[in-house]
């Protein structure tokens, strides 16, 4: 029973108790406890992984929807731009057409006026020549009485006539 001399009896009972505790607890305590704890750890790990995955999926879905929205926006813009473009084009075309039409009409009118003018001048010339013929006939009848006068007059007329 000395302080530092090991005691066989106590040593023996110690080994017996420890072995007993070890065997009993290994079967009935440590096994289920370690199992439950590792199971729980696994569950938690799985839960975290699943949550992460769900988060990832959500971001993916969000990305997808964003993409769809942005695509739609681009399309909308394109459609709008196209509409604006075609409208402008239409107006432009209409304007061009109108311009062309008016020019044509103008041209035609000018041509017509020119033609009319020509015709009028022609007519006038014809009329003048017939009038002058009449006048000449009248003058001739009157002047034929006096030769000298007749000649002079004719010259004068002729001079006048040259102007036109």
């Amino acid at each position: 029973m000395d302080l530092i001399t090991p005691d066989f009896g106590l040593f023996f009972w110690m080994i017996v108790s420890f072995t007993l505790v070890f065997i009993i607890l290994r079967k009935f305590a440590w096994k289920p406890i370690v199992l439950a704890i590792s199971e729980r750890e696994k569950n938690i790990e799985e839960g975290i992984i699943m949550a992460e995955k769900a988060k990832e999926d959500m971001t993916k879905v969000e990305e997808k929807s964003e993409k769809i929205i942005s695509e739609a926006r681009i399309e909308k813009e394109a459609i709008l731009r196209k509409g604006r473009q075609s409208r402008e084009q239409l107006i432009e075309e209409a304007k061009e057409q109108a311009k062309l039409n008016s020019q044509e009409m103008l041209e035609m009118a000018k041509k017509r006026i020119e033609e009319e003018k020509e015709a009028a001048i022609q007519q006038m010339k014809e009329q003048i020549s017939s009038v002058s013929l009449e006048i000449a006939e009248k003058v001739l009848r009157e002047e034929l009485a006096d030769d000298k006068k007749q000649k002079k007059l004719m010259e004068q007329y002729l001079k006048e006539f040259k102007v036109n």
Binding site: L25, W30, P32, I33
Partner: peptide, 12 residues
């Protein structure tokens, strides 16, 4: 530990 072990076994 038997008490605790029982609980872990019944409700892991």
């Amino acid at each position: 530990f038997l008490t605790i072990g029982k609980r872990y076994r019944e409700e892991p």
